[in-house]
C-alpha cells in the first residue's frame, strides 16, 4: 500500500514540472521586459537592474529556471508588484474563504447529488427520474454567475432571507459564516451536482443490471434500500472519479463565484492580479490551484484501492 502511494506520488512530479515550466514561461513571454514588469511601473532604472540581478534575468534561461525552482522549494514565490507583499503571504491570507467555500460546496453537492442519482436510477424512466435528469441537463448548461444573480435576486433582494454578498470568517460565529456561504455554494455547486447525479444514476443502472444483483435478489435480500446500498458500493469507482474530476470545475468556478459574491478569497485575488498584470501573484496562484487539483487526483487514485478489491496496488 505504501509503495503504491509513493508510486502515485512520484507520478505527479512530471505533471507539476509541466505546470512549473508553464508558469515560469508565463512571465518570460509577457510583453515587455520581465524585470521592468516585476519592478513595477514607476521603477527607476536602478530598481529594474536590481530586480534583474536578483532574479538572474541576465543569466541563461535554464539556470534561471532552476534558481526559480530552488526558491519555490524554499517557499519563496516572489513579491507582489503592487502590494510589495510576499506572494505566499498574500495567498495564505486569502486561503480561508476559498477553502470554506469549496468544502461547503463539495459537501452539499455530494450529500444531495448521490441520493438524487440513486433515486433516479431506482425509479428509472418514471417521473422522478425524468425530473432529476431534466434538472441535471439544465444544471449543466447554467452558467454559475447567471444562477448566482438569479439566486441573489430572489433570496437576497426580493425576499431578503440571505445576505447579498460578502464573507464572514467562522470566528465571527457559525450562523453569519454559514449564512454568507449558502448562496455562493449553491451557485458554485449546481453544475457539480448535475455531473455527480448523472454519473450516479448511470453507474447505478449499470450495476443494477449485473448478475450479482440478480443473485442478491435470489437471496431475498431484504429491501430495495439494502439492494441500492449494495449497488452503490459497486458503483462507487466511477462516482468517486467524477467527484474528483469535478473539483476542477469547482476551482474554476471559485474564481467567478467569489467575484459575484465579493468573497475575499483566492479567486478574487486571481482576478485582481490578472487585471493588474501582477505576474508573481498569478504565477503563485496557478501553482497553488494546480497543486490542489493534482493532490485531489492523487487522493482519488488512492481511494480506488480501498473501494475496489480488484485493483492491485
Amino acid at each position: 500500500m505504501t509503495a503504491y502511494i509513493v508510486r502515485r506520488l512520484f507520478a505527479t512530479l512530471p505533471v507539476m514540472a509541466v505546470v512549473a515550466l508553464f508558469v515560469f514561461f508565463l512571465l518570460r513571454f509577457a510583453p515587455g521586459d520581465p524585470a521592468a514588469i516585476i519592478a513595477g511601473e514607476d521603477a527607476t532604472a536602478e530598481a529594474i537592474a536590481a530586480v534583474r540581478g536578483k532574479l538572474g534575468l541576465d543569466r541563461p534561461m535554464v539556470e534561471q529556471f532552476f534558481v526559480w525552482i530552488l526558491q519555490l522549494a524554499q517557499g519563496d514565490m516572489g513579491v507582489s508588484i503592487f502590494s510589495n507583499l510576499a506572494v505566499t503571504r498574500l495567498i495564505s491570507q486569502r486561503l480561508e474563504p476559498t477553502v470554506a467555500l469549496t468544502l461547503s460546496t463539495l459537501f452539499v453537492a455530494v450529500a444531495l447529488a448521490i441520493p438524487v442519482g440513486v433515486v433516479a436510477a431506482w425509479k428509472a424512466r418514471k417521473l422522478v427520474d425524468r425530473l432529476v435528469m431534466g434538472f441535471a441537463v439544465l444544471g449543466f448548461a447554467m452558467p454559475g454567475f447567471v444562477l448566482a444573480y438569479i439566486l441573489i435576486y430572489f433570496f437576497a433582494v426580493q425576499w431578503q432571507l440571505l445576505p447579498v454578498q460578502g464573507y464572514r470568517p467562522i470566528g465571527e460565529g457559525l450562523w453569519p459564516f454559514v449564512e454568507c456561504l449558502i448562496l455562493p455554494s449553491v451557485a458554485l455547486g449546481v453544475t457539480y451536482m448535475a455531473l455527480i447525479a448523472r454519473i450516479t444514476r448511470a453507474s447505478m443502472l449499470e450495476v443494477l443490471a449485473q448478475d450479482y444483483i440478480r443473485t442478491a435478489n435470489a437471496k431475498g435480500l431484504a429491501t430495495d434500500r439494502v439492494l441500492l446500498l449494495l449497488a452503490l458500493k459497486n458503483a462507487a469507482v466511477p462516482i468517486i472519479t467524477v467527484i474528483g474530476i469535478g473539483i476542477a470545475l469547482l476551482i474554476s468556478g471559485v474564481v467567478i463565484t467569489e467575484t459575484v459574491f465579493n468573497i475575499p478569497g483566492l479567486g478574487r485575488l486571481t482576478v485582481v492580479a490578472v487585471l493588474k498584470r501582477d505576474y508573481p501573484v498569478v504565477q503563485g496562484l496557478i501553482l497553488v490551484f494546480a497543486a490542489a487539483k493534482v493532490l485531489v487526483n492523487l487522493i482519488i487514485d488512492i481511494s480506488y484501492a480501498f473501494l475496489d478489491p480488484r485493483i492491485r496496488y
Partner: peptide
C-alpha cells in the same frame, strides 16, 4: 500538465 491547471485560470 495543461489539464492540471483549471481551464478558466489557464485562459485568463
Amino acid at each position: 500538465g495543461l489539464m492540471a491547471i483549471p481551464s478558466i485560470l489557464l485562459a485568463i
